[in-house]
């Protein structure tokens, strides 16, 4: 998980070695840019947050402990920066409860063979409201579980679960349309 090569790359970055920092940036920047884009929903802000996040990564690299992979550690920093943007916009993360109590039951899910296309699903995800999109992508694409998402977003685990169900139903609607 934490290779010797990676540890010497980190040591070089800590020394302020530009080349090493660039190597590290190159290794993770595309993936992190996509994370930013999914969280924020637009490329301009994603760029700004990517920039801030990596400056932060280089500053805080000395506090990185090999408890997690470097990629996972960077991803958490990136996500926190994304959430800061929402805080700045003064939009609190809210569990959307428009259809509270009306969480789609498993039975409602389609049984028919549906052929999805990555491009269309991606477009659909980008059409979701921020609160839906974040939970859905954190869970399905970034690979966090509901307990972790609850921690990241500062909500209840049950909130994450129900928000995810609604987000998925909403996405299904968008894709059918």
């Amino acid at each position: 998980m934490y290779s010797e090569a990676e540890s010497s790359l980190i040591a070089l970055c800590l020394k302020g070695d530009r080349q090493a920092q660039y190597t590290l940036y190159k290794r993770y920047s595309d993936a992190m840019f996509n994370v930013c884009h999914r969280m924020l929903g637009n490329e301009a802000e994603a760029e700004d947050v990517l920039q801030e996040s990596f400056i932060d990564v280089f500053r805080r690299l000395d506090s990185f402990r090999a408890e997690s992979s470097l990629g996972a550690w960077i991803k958490r920093i990136v996500i926190n920066h994304c959430l800061n943007v929402f805080k700045k916009r003064r939009i609190k993360f809210e569990v959307i409860s428009e259809s509270a109590g009306n969480i789609p039951a498993e039975e409602n899910e389609d049984h028919e063979e549906v052929v999805f296309e990555v491009r269309k699903v991606k477009e659909g995800i980008m059409k979701l409201p921020d609160g839906y999109r974040q939970v859905l992508t954190l869970y399905l694409i970034e690979g966090y579980d509901h307990a972790e998402i609850a921690d990241i977003l500062g909500i209840q685990e049950t909130g994450s679960k129900s928000q995810f169900s609604r987000a998925k139903a909403k996405l299904r609607d968008i894709l059918k349309a």
Partner: peptide, 17 residues
């Protein structure tokens, strides 16, 4: 999952960092 990471970070971001 991997196919959803289709965007490339623009080069100018590194220049700014």
């Amino acid at each position: 999952r991997a196919s959803f990471d289709d965007l490339k970070a623009p080069d100018r971001v590194w220049a700014r960092i």
